Computed example of a mutant assay.
Amino acid sequence: MSSTVSRASARRRPELAAFLRSRRARVTPADVGMPPGLRRRTPGLRREEVAQLSGVGVTWYTWLEQGRDINASPQVLDAVARTLRLDTAEREHLYDLAGVAFTAGPEGHADSVTPEIQRIIDDLGTLPAAVYNARYDVLATNAVYRTLFPTVGMSTGADRNVLWHLFTARACCCTMVERETELPMLVATFRGAYGRHVGEPRWEGLIRRLCTASDYFAQLWASGDVAPPGARVKIIQHASVGLLNCTTQSLSVAGTPEARIVVYVPADAESHDHLGTLRTLSDPLVGCPVHARPLSVELERQAARKG
């Protein structure tokens, strides 16, 4: 272990001790269904009570609260966090101080955005922007995004997902021109996020649905490739204006776990002009130049299929 890592670990231990003591002090016996008892010299639970409620040994918990250099598993830390009634931010802080990798639970996964976030992407005005969660569900869009990606922006329910639209469209109608490069990278990034959500029904359901609908997705998923997210230049085809070169930039959303604002920035003057044209369209075309049809027609087809 390097001296830098050793010093950081040593500094975390007293912070962990102070944090646990402060959280224990604010939980009363009544909060956890215990009688108040007599002769409590300090407010809150006793160490032995936290240990009992958490299902751990008194000595082990005492050592943890004293900041000793002991190993703590995620399961044990979760039990302590439940006893001390820690919220998501406090639980993550506990993990950090204990030197254990934190994974947000399914209850913290984003499925919507606040009005303030919607206003931010609306006020971007000339740039297509959307909010995605780690599953690539589309949580919010602005007007120009809905014109650039019409079927994604105006879909609902389980279909409002970037992966679903890219892999269920005909190959020629895929909005990503470099399909054989972009889609494998997208699936590899998706798998990287999946590692934090293995076994969660909505993730597993989406993967099964995609594998059933797309042999290409099933092939890519079986490869096991993993990649980190990052900014990339994407070549997007739009039946109304042709090709656009856009760089994607991602901005995290504070207070909304695993959500990010993704902005499509034109990479050249021609793409900038194409976006300007798109902003004037009320009924953009969808599909490739061969199969192009107005969005209104596509929505009517979708409604007929569902009806």
Rank of each mutant, 00 (worst) to 15 (best):
E200N: 06
A169I: 07
L163W: 08
R191C: 12
L166N: 01
G195L: 11
R202S: 03
T175R: 04
W203T: 07
V198Q: 01
Y194V: 04
G205K: 15
E178I: 05
V177L: 10
H197Y: 12
T181A: 03
L186W: 05
F167W: 03
C174Y: 07
H197M: 13
R179K: 05
P184S: 07
H197S: 13
T181P: 02
L210S: 00
A171N: 05
L166F: 09
E204R: 14
A193R: 01
E182S: 14
T189C: 13
L186C: 08
V187E: 03
V198G: 00
A188Q: 01
E178A: 15
M176C: 04
L206N: 15
E182N: 10
E180S: 14
R170E: 14
V198I: 03
R202C: 08
R170V: 10
R179E: 12
V177W: 02
A188Y: 03
F167D: 06
V162P: 03
P201A: 12
R191T: 07
A171M: 11
G199S: 09
H197Q: 10
T181E: 12
T175Q: 11
R191E: 07
G192V: 11
L163N: 02
L166P: 00
C173R: 01
L183D: 07
I207S: 09
V177A: 02
E200R: 01
E204M: 14
G199E: 05
H165K: 03
L206C: 14
A193Y: 08
H197G: 06
C173I: 06
E180A: 13
C174I: 09
V162D: 02
G205T: 15
I207G: 02
P184D: 06
W203E: 10
G205W: 03
T175N: 04
T181D: 15
W164A: 04
R208M: 14
R179M: 11
A188H: 03
A193H: 07
R179A: 13
V177H: 02
T181L: 14
A188N: 03
F167Y: 09
P201I: 04
A169K: 02
L163P: 05
A169Y: 04
T181H: 06
T168E: 10
T175V: 15
